[in-house]
Amino acid sequence: MSSVTLTTAEQARLHRAKPSFIGLVGGEIFKSTRMLSTWLTFALMLCFVAAPNIILLLIQVPFAENFKLGNNPKALDAFYNLLETDFLMLRVFIGFFLIFLTANVIGREYQLGTIRILLARGVGRLQLLLAKVSAVVLIGLITFLIWLLVLSGLMLLTPLVKSGNLNALQALNGDFWHNVELYLLTIFISMGATMLLTVAICAVGRSLALGLTVSALFFPIDNIAMAMMRIVFLITKNDFWKNITAYFLGPNLNQMASVAITTHNIENAGAPTLVDVDFNHTMLVTLVYAVIFVVVAIALTWRRDVKE
């Protein structure tokens, strides 16, 4: 090994270099794009998201026949059917993708011990956490947009294939587009909550495996807990067991779209709470969980020694 002499200008430039937030976000995106597993997960999840629509193109289903009616309320219902299926898949699998991505970006850094390279160069712990979260948000949004474009293409293709024209699009009214916006809003909220949950778990466990496993199991466990509460309620007849489900995160997210959209009957995307709740309630519960996740992530990142 030999030392290399730098010119004064080169040396001055290197010595002036300081970690910047933009640089950190760029570094995180660079690392994520170099992970083969990121691309594989992206492609696999996209297949799952698009699968129902592709199957619909290939097989005969009764509601799809309504696209042939053109500007007709039944065609509108058919679009709502497509929307519910596609957005449910989008919400579920973008969630899985975000869990995977967040656990990799945060948990893997601790697991490999590479966190110490960055922190030992003067990068602040919270600065790095925020940069990582920002990178996840950016990649998550880009992924969301790409998947949404693919779904939109498939949604347009469906009436075209089924009826040979796009006349059914005339059935889409202002209410429909407003409901699409509301549904997308609930998906964004669900994405945010899922990402923050994984951030908090990674901050606790400081491991890729733990971040991935616990985050992926959180919502199924939440849904199983709902069934347990129902059983306990049926045995004890005590309303407490029903009421407490109003504060579970998963069920609130599951029914957020259906309580937000009032002009059309939207199916819950999973087990709902055992008591009736409104949109504001689901938003409030999600916000409280989000705040808890953020506080846990910040406190543990800020205060705990880095021994990895």
Partner: peptide, 30 residues
């Protein structure tokens, strides 16, 4: 930023090339 460190066993991004490891750290440090 004016101190270089190698702490314990080298912590590296095993899934990346040697050059990309340096690029990743360089991007973060600016």
């Amino acid at each position: 930023p004016r101190v270089g460190a190698l702490i314990e066993t080298p912590a590296l991004y095993l899934y990346m090339s040697g050059r990309d490891n340096l690029r990743a750290v360089a991007a973060s440090l600016g």
